[in-house]
Write a protein that binds this DNA or RNA. Structure first.
Length: 449
RNA sequence: UCCUCGAUAGCUCAAUGGGCAGAGCACCCGGCUGUUAACCGGGGGGUUACUGGUUCGAGUCCAGUUCGAGGAGCCA
């Protein structure tokens, strides 16, 4: 009998070991048998490969074990790697001819089968669902997206600054926040780190924060989570035009990093790569005024009464999701909409000098109806104007004292944006629902598991 | 908060006009040397979400409750 070398190999790299023995430590994803053959699909976190147990190659006890092993049992297998076009897997085309099999734990009956399941059931079993191929692929893409964001920012001179998650008051005054007890005071979970980053730029020039943010909105749609991850770059000496260039560079870098590094994952997801390959700067730019005109045009063209109703809009209103969807379907790249009415945006956005009713703001809308993935703006740099805006909106002036201070000691034009990680992942993966783009989603009716 | 839809075996679903609660998958047993959600034969498995009502009889009809999903609004 041949002595098999023991070495740890990961499934993703099997192609490098054809003709050689390998040891894989993983879990049994699925199994089927045919007489003297047992086909096992084995996962190890990096991929899935087929392991074939042939009765003549192993002792009787090993064959019997393979034949009876329940789904999701943990196991260590050793055998020779073969290239075989019949072999399924991620990546496919390689399999292991099993010589030895060690069961680490024989699993109990596993609730999630390779058959179909309902959303409610899967969400209740999210802790197990993440093992399924599709979820595995999505979450690996998410990890790439987050890594690409850091890589791009770090290599372009941005300094990562952690901003507080426990905050004393509403940062923007626009959204509902989660209230938590803070000794004898009340605190709120952060909805943004932006205001703190505006302090950070005066120390570091270009900064970003990257972490979870919280919104207590009772949103009940496929685009919303109550806890989601956002990266927020903030740049000193930066106007809106410059900001848009930064955004399109970064988003393009993220997309192309995923295209390069997650080929297997995109294949599992059935994502059409041609929808992503042309995502390169520049992205189209339209103004809010132009967007309103386009939406009205689309509204006039449709015969669907319900759609006509949903697309109804007048100048001054913020976009609803039907408007965003209709707009983005006109383009095959992410779309910048600039110059929103100041009244529908946050208090700190710089108005246009010749037209103060609109502000230097820009949303980036992902194509294929995925909607807003970035909100950004140039910030007000004049302390007097900022104070006026705070007063006009009825915000607690005292809470913003430090923020106004920033404009008194070397104020400069500056801009920043926030990119929602899960929305970006949902778009890049071409998937239906944002809840699959984060390991353990928090939505209005879900806090378990 | 509003609108729509749903809850039956572990899972996905079916059950004619109110008349014996069923199938596929999963699980267990048997067969097969290339399965791709294998296939073939056999087996066990039910508080029909909950509460009440109508009826000789309710999974089915009525009222309420709970939980969930999709959408709107809100928001990124």
């Amino acid at each position: 009998m041949r002595i098999l070398a023991r070495m740890d190999t990961i499934i993703r790299d099997l192609h490098r070991h054809v003709g050689h023995p390998v040891t894989i430590k993983g879990w049994l994803y699925n199994r089927t048998d045919k007489g003297k053959l047992v086909f096992m699909q084995v996962r190890d976190g990096s991929g899935i490969c087929q392991a074939v147990v042939f009765k003549r190659d192993v002792d009787e006890a090993t064959f019997e074990t393979a034949l009876r092993l329940p789904q999701e049992s943990s196991l260590i297998i050793t055998g020779e790697v073969r290239a075989d076009p019949r072999a399924p897997g991620v990546p496919s085309g390689f399999e292991i001819g099993v010589r030895s099999l060690q069961v680490v734990q024989r699993a109990e009956e596993y609730p999630i089968t390779p058959k179909e399941h309902g959303v409610d059931f899967l969400m209740d079993h999210r802790h197990l669902w993440i093992r399924s191929t599709r979820q595995w692929a999505l979450l690996r893409v998410r990890a790439t997206v987050m890594r690409a964001i850091r890589q791009w920012l770090d290599s372009n001179g941005y300094v990562e600054m952690s901003t507080p998650i426990l905050t004393p008051s509403a940062a923007e005054g626009t959204t509902n926040l989660f209230e938590v007890g803070y000794f004898d005071q009340k605190a709120y979970l952060a909805q943004t780190g932006q205001l703190y980053n505006e302090a950070n730029i005066f120390a570091f020039g270009k900064v970003y924060c990257f972490g979870p943010t919280f919104r207590a909105e009772k949103s009940k749609t496929r685009r919303h989570l109550t806890e989601f991850w956002m990266v927020e770059p903030e740049i000193a000496y930066c106007d809106l035009e410059h900001l848009l260039e930064i955004e399109e560079q970064m988003v393009s870098y993220i997309v192309h990093t995923v295209l390069t590094e997650n080929q297997n994952e995109l294949k599992v997801l059935g994502r059409d790569r041609s929808k992503l390959e042309h995502i390169t700067p520049p992205f189209p730019r339209i103004t809010y005024d132009e967007a309103i005109a386009k939406i009205k045009e689309l509204q006039a063209q449709t015969d669907d009464e319900e759609q006509k109703q949903l697309l109804d809009i007048t100048w001054g209103m913020d976009f609803g999701s039907p408007h965003e969807t209709a707009l983005t379907q006109l383009y095959d790249k992410p779309l910048f909409v600039t110059g929103f009415p100041s009244a529908v945006k946050a208090f700190y956005m710089e108005p246009y000098p010749d037209r103060p009713e609109v502000c230097k703001s820009a949303d980036l809308l992902a194509p294929e109806g995925y909607g807003e993935i970035i909100g950004g703006s140039e910030r007000i740099s004049d302390p007097e104007l900022l104070l006026k805006r705070i007063r006009d909106q009825g915000l607690p002036e005292e809470a913003y004292r430090w923020y106004i201070d920033l404009r008194k000691f070397g104020s400069v034009p500056h801009s920043g944006f926030g990119l929602g990680v899960e929305r970006t992942v949902t778009w890049i993966c071409g998937t239906e629902h944002i809840r699959e783009a984060i390991p353990f989603p928090r939505t209005i009716y879900r806090l378990y598991p």
